[in-house]
Design a protein around this nucleic acid. Structure first.
Lengths: 344, 344
DNA sequence: AAGCGCGCGTAGAACGGTTTACGTAGAACG
DNA sequence: CGTTCTACGTAAACCGTTCTACGCGCGCTT
């Protein structure tokens, strides 16, 4: 048997060590900038790494140490609000070794769990969950396995994981106050459809609480109307149509997210209603299309970028060892546009 | 030193083997449904797996074999067209072992390369690149390292990787024909900004070719106008405004993607133009918001779901060993709405 | 009956990092 | 000058899979 010519080998940590004339462990220390390497050694090693174009093998790292991968779990990709959050996360990870990878759960608790498992199986160092559909005990269970930060899930009863939120009650209050000041009296709230594990931890529930309180405060308790609808175009439009064709239709609809507000706007237009003359519409998240002239949608800005940035920061702290839970809250801000302002 | 009580150990392939009373390799074979296991043995092993709740350790798998992870590289998250593609990919992977994970490059070639590296480092089995900004030689280089399928990048000169596209020339032709039939004569094309590596492989260039040919065909060569603009709201709006404030403004604008068409629509509305009376607008991708009454945007449907589905199928074939490149093409379809139809 | 191929299963060597346990040299100290 | 630290490096074990090479027994051919 003739010897097979040595084909181009992978550059491993061993190759680097040899080239730099040091031990394998020394190179590893440099990579993880761990304690116990002199500047001289660090320099030699880094030179070799650059020269050889060495890249650490993530799977091998995952066997013992970290993978420097963070999971980002989103409910869906149609709502551009999540893009804002990602932007914030990217900003936070800019100069770090961490790489974010996304999973999309399609707003289904089952898929969400499967994705969490998949991410844990891949030894990700931590996960950011956005708008999770999981009940709190499931989240606790996950948190005991792998560091997580949960965005848009209110910490009720001192959970064992970090959370990042905007003040949803305040957001809803701002909406009601804004509408009432503009003369609208029958303000309805169009919320998300109820899931299996409905609870006060959900942002839509928090918004509902704020909405109810503010309506009460304004002396409009009798006009409180809450409708729950699914995420699809059809469901949202049907709900809107039903509300607007009722005997006493609302003169303003507060939608739990912009996405839905645009569907309501579409229905209103189809029905020949004037916005905001016959109907005012408000969204939530202040996503990019709110600003388009054909929408001109008043919305609540909860700054997705900040949420993402803080979530990433908290997650890395967790990974580095923090065990005490932290909860970050952003103050929302109302951005008024034509959909609630007759004059402009 | 007192012995530390044995804490709950991870369930490994060894645990399963022991429980089922077989060898480790036998379990591995069952997991990968490889050749050489009897039904009896397979049953025993699967029972143990279920009983113990065993989950294979992806990092360990990555050391030797596959990770059953596919990378999905998207340019950005604001354009909901990519959500459609993901839907298709998910459909294709439904009953497979493969798990898709997303990376977002922010439409920057540098970030894109970094993400590809990151995915390769993590031993992903293959990558689907959507709307890549990389020049063809870079793609070839990547393809030699890891199986890839490229969506929205036309195969020119027999590249060594698979591609999935719609017929962009035809799409543009359909647009021009539709507009001309409706009586519009000065049809402009609002395309993507030119990058460093501009070429015929780009979908926007293909659309431009189709547009020019169709205009020529219609005897409107003298009215050909092509404008390139960036992705941000401001850039798109500025470009639109400039076009519309010119001495001889177009009476129809064909935008390379819906996203941009909505910005143009916004500008038109701001300028008090009637759509489609003064200006017809057409987009591309037929994303969900085209159907909203306030937009009612005529668009080209290239079926993101099909693109995603086929890409995933091709990628898995590649991973399983195919070496001959394949190129899948979808026939686009025009969906007419009010933005080009005065009557409706 | 020896030989052969086939179907099923096994033992053990990789894979490429991280981490532990342990040298070793030089400085500081009494 | 011997001892004790401290700072830096090293060798080797280890992580959980996959994969290669091989063993065994059975039935079929010659």
């Amino acid at each position: 048997m003739v010897a097979i010519p040595t084909q181009k080998q992978r550059v491993t940590i061993r190759t680097v060590a040899e080239d730099a004339g040091v031990s394998v462990a020394a190179v590893s220390k440099v990579l993880r900038d761990a304690y116990g390497v002199s500047d001289a050694l660090r320099g030699r090693v880094q030179a070799s790494i650059a020269k050889l174009g060495y890249r650490p093998h993530a799977a091998a790292r995952g066997m013992r140490g970290q993978t420097y991968t963070l999971g980002l779990l989103m409910p869906d990709l149609h709502n551009p609000f999540f893009a804002d959050i990602l932007e914030g996360v990217n900003t936070a990870l800019q100069r770090s070794q961490y790489q974010p990878l996304l999973g999309v759960s399609d707003s289904a608790a089952g898929t969400e769990l499967a994705l969490i498992d998949a991410m844990a199986d891949r030894q990700m160092d931590g996960i950011i969950l956005i708008g999770s559909r999981l009940p709190i005990n499931e989240l606790e269970r996950v948190a005991s396995r792998i560091p997580i930060v949960v965005i848009a899930h209110h910490p009720i009863g001192e959970p064992d994981f970090d959370t990042v939120n905007n003040d949803d009650r305040l957001g809803a209050t701002l909406v009601v106050q804004h509408l009432v000041a503009a003369g609208f009296k029958h303000v309805a709230y169009l919320s998300q459809e109820l899931g299996a594990h409905n609870s006060d931890t959900m942002v839509t529930t928090q918004r509902e609480i704020g909405y109810r309180a503010a309506m009460h405060e304004a002396g409009l308790s009798r006009n409180i109307q809450v409708v729950h609808a699914g995420q699809t175009s059809r469901e949202a439009q049907n709900a809107a149509r039903q509300m607007l064709e009722a005997r006493h239709p609302p003169d303003a609809i507060f939608c739990w997210t912009d996405f839905i507000a645009l569907e309501v706007l579409s229905v209103a237009r189809d029905m020949g209603l004037d916005v905001p003359g016959d109907l005012a519409i408000v969204g939530y998240d202040n996503t990019w299309y709110c600003d388009l002239a054909q929408n001109a949608l008043t919305s609540i800005d909860q700054s997705g970028q900040v949420l993402g940035l803080q979530a990433a920061r908290l997650l890395i702290e967790r990974i580095k060892g923090r065990t005490q839970a932290e909860h970050y809250v952003v103050t929302p801000r109302l951005v008024a546009r034509r959909s609630t302002q007759p004059g402009s």
